[in-house]
Design a binder for these strands. Structure first.
Lengths: 261, 261
DNA sequence: CGTCGTGTTGAAATCGTTCAAGATCTGTGG
DNA sequence: CCACAGATCTTGAACGATTTCAACACGACG
């Protein structure tokens, strides 16, 4: 499955002085720019932002950053997927989020200037590295950028509140349904299918994130499959009945009301 | 127990050349200013910030704002305590946080311009209302203010990650211990006792926040009391063995290693 | 072809919930 | 000051959702 950022036609055109190669990697030509940090910027501002951004590849299972690393940059996922997790003193981990193209990583480090979680690539990935000190410079000159940055941070807060909601008062079935619905809508927002996608993370990761064991995830998948909600083959998922999943996620008991055919 | 910042006199008019009354309600004279939004500002900048801030009282059990309300202002708790919670379609609630003096409320609303949670006063309280559009104006002129604002938002993100950690992979005993330790250190940071404080929320609220039932909370309190970790009378809590609570919160089994006398 | 990582499934165990009863506290009004 | 009602909290016993433990299946890879 090809989920590369640049599935679109690379809008080469007028990338000022930029050579073809670098134009392809610029914000203006990135398929995620209407979701990502440069959202709403005009072309000239986007170019200014571009100038401070570096690109970096991260191989599968490699760290983008680690707990305790000094914070210097935010990262935008360009291609691929990441997971972030915290670790307690026992070495137990808790995945706090999965990040996909167009999403920002590292905002939790601004406060202490040290990263508060590990960020690991779930597949070979590529990020845009945004030096925060330079970004702050731009904030003074580009109010639109600042406003959008605030929206992104705010959105991060609400996403985490949703996870708190999920962990705090949903049962296993609801959690997993909510997880799938969440992925579905995020892929939809990126122009991918909302009903067919790959789980980029292991069942272990899903379970950890949802506060459940791997066995529970496995059982839930089996159950959803038997109920005709999903078709799953390995990590490939096809959501057959998204509406039912949404109901489940909202707490409506779907199996109590089986559909006719 | 008196934790009032300035339960004192109501403010009289004129802000700029501050009369006694209004000076008492200004940031410069507020005991929380080194924790709150104005942290690090010099006196003249603090006064400029002050000018855009309004004060508002919220009676116990009253809403500061409700889900869906249009977002116009952030709020800093000046006196009292608040809880924020989300509600799902079933009407189930999940408390996402408790806020105490010097803490900011409403940042989750920046993204959508509508509040994403209800905020309720746990006791008669007072907040500083910070019109966000005006605050954005100041950001352009006061880089220190902007930087601190980013730190605050970032800190909000890390706090929520801690809650995710708590809900995702701690057992009941750990959760409650972590909760008490968290309160303890936040009170300490405000100059209050880290070992004696009042729970401003009901057991119901504590349970909801921790993803546990009220009965579980009750049993945990009893157990901790029997183990000599706490003395509890109603909502008044004395932490007798903070170190042990910290160990418990970190996942070390304290009752497996009972202390001699 | 065997091994390792990953995922599935069943049975037993466990932690926390649910249900139920009683205790304690608070505030109100006589 | 007491009696009473309603809220809040505590405690016990049974239940149940999820975990734990264990065995097995499957696919990838050397």
């Amino acid at each position: 499955m090809n989920q590369s950022c640049l599935k679109v036609s690379p809008s080469c055109s007028s990338a000022s002085t930029s050579v073809a190669g670098s134009a392809l990697r610029s914000c203006t030509s990135c398929g995620m720019h209407q979701l990502c940090l440069p959202m709403g910027l005009d072309v000239s501002d986007m170019r200014r932002l571009d100038k401070i951004i570096g690109r970096r590849k991260v191989a599968r299972d490699d760290f983008l950053y680690r707990i305790g690393d000094r914070f210097t940059s935010l990262y935008a996922v360009r291609v691929g997927h990441f997971k972030t997790y915290q670790e307690n003193l026992d070495g137990d981990r808790q995945i706090t989020g999965f990040q996909m193209p167009g999403e920002l990583l590292g905002m939790d480090a601004i406060s202490t200037e040290h990263h508060q979680c590990d960020a690991v690539a779930l597949q070979d990935s590529e990020v845009c590295e945004i030096p925060f000190a330079m970004l702050e410079q731009l904030f003074g000159q580009m109010p639109t950028l600042l406003r959008h940055f605030h929206r992104i941070m705010s959105h991060e807060i609400t996403s985490e509140q949703s996870v708190i909601m999920l962990l705090g008062n949903m049962r296993a079935e609801q959690r997993f349904a909510a997880f799938l619905v969440n992925l579905s809508s995020r892929y939809a927002a990126r122009g991918y299918s909302s009903t067919r996608f790959q789980l980029r993370m292991t069942r272990q990761d899903v379970g950890n994130y949802l506060g459940l064991t791997i066995e529970s995830i496995s059982r839930l998948i089996s159950r959803f499959r038997k109920q005709g909600l999903l078709v799953v083959e390995q990590r490939e998922v096809e959501v057959v009945d998204l509406a039912a999943l949404k109901k489940l996620a909202a707490g409506v008991d779907v199996c109590a009301m089986p559909k006719p055919a």
